[in-house]
Design a protein around this nucleic acid. Structure first.
Lengths: 193, 193
DNA sequence: GTCTATAATTCGATAGAC
DNA sequence: GTCTATCGAATTATAGAC
């Protein structure tokens, strides 16, 4: 079951290229050219172009689901859960920025029935985030917002980070980044309250 | 110079379909089928597939640039400028949600030299947002954050809204939405400070 | 694991009649 | 403004030799 280093190299290079050019715009010829061999060799490693996308997407998707399920089962209060959610996002983004980029940008290129499966799982994830926000408001830890609006805004506040990581990974301290983003989400930009 | 209603209908339908399927995944045959005519008729309305994308992208891009230039020249303090920026985003998103969607998702499908032109303009836009944040921190109106991190987080906080609008436009009160998002960006979710 | 060769399909775009 | 017909290029994928 060992994955040859050549296959691993192919998967890594392809991931980066698909992120950069987009899944549809990246051809099998592009991927082969990046490896310096002919198109037909790709099929020694994978079954099809779409299976490549599926592998990337469902791997990182599972990481997020495993992470949030741990958070939901934890004994944290809503504030603690929200902090853990931010931490989860930054941990996964810092270790797998290109996969996170695909998760954000390329999911809709999945074909049915995988597309519906993916969207369903994402909806489940968002519902769990919604519960954290909802409980925080009912507890009085969070202010009274429209729950859906704030759920989406919180999710959006961490969704851009993969891009930052890919371009500046050498200069990013993930702990400082986590601190800043957490501070923003909890307290906003305003100094005078 | 009057645009025929048939052309306008084509442009509107195509915009929606390109948003839904993605630019690369949407074929000229798809667009023709949506209109109920043959592919060749498309070229009565547009020069090429890419000119279609360019038209959509540079129109909405200009709207954002015009808007932020007015804000930068205004007499508002940094807090007022940031509020105006949020207002601009929600105004453009509520009136042109599909164009905003293309701006977020499809810009990289532009070909050179249009691609570089677009990216340059976007960088200019982000620099202006950065100046607002920077001045707010120096004035003491905003708390001391890493400027780049907070600039990107603020931008991300409003970037998701086009998606919300396309799916729920009938139930959205843009003034309430603006109030909620502004409140989030300025004060965060935390109740106890 | 790498190659050559090619199948089978789809793509954007054009020519020209009506 | 709509059609039929078609071109040339590009695309994913497969067959089979080495």
């Amino acid at each position: 079951m060992k994955i040859s280093s050549r296959k691993k190299q192919f998967l890594d290079e392809s991931l980066k290229m698909i992120h950069k050019k987009g899944y549809k715009a990246t051809t099998m010829r592009d991927l082969a050219g990046q490896m310096g061999f002919e198109v037909s060799n790709i099929y020694n490693f994978i079954e099809s172009k779409e299976s490549l996308l599926e592998t990337y997407l469902f791997q990182i998707s599972e990481d997020f689901h495993t992470g949030i399920n741990h958070i939901m089962k934890s004994s944290h209060d809503p504030s603690g859960k929200l902090k853990a959610l931010i931490s989860l996002n930054i941990k996964l983004t810092s270790t797998k920025p290109y996969q996170v980029g695909l998760l954000v940008n390329e999911w809709r290129n999945l074909q049915e029935p995988k597309l519906s499966k993916f969207v369903d799982k994402r909806t489940q994830y968002e519902k769990k985030v919604r519960i954290i926000i909802e409980e925080g408001i009912e507890d009085g830890q969070f202010r009274r917002f429209d729950i859906d609006i704030i759920t989406h805004t919180v999710l959006a506040s961490v969704r851009w980070i993969y891009y930052w990581y890919i371009d500046h990974s050498e200069n990013i301290n993930p702990y400082e980044l986590e601190k800043q983003v957490t501070d923003f989400i909890f307290n906003g930009v305003n100094r005078t309250k």
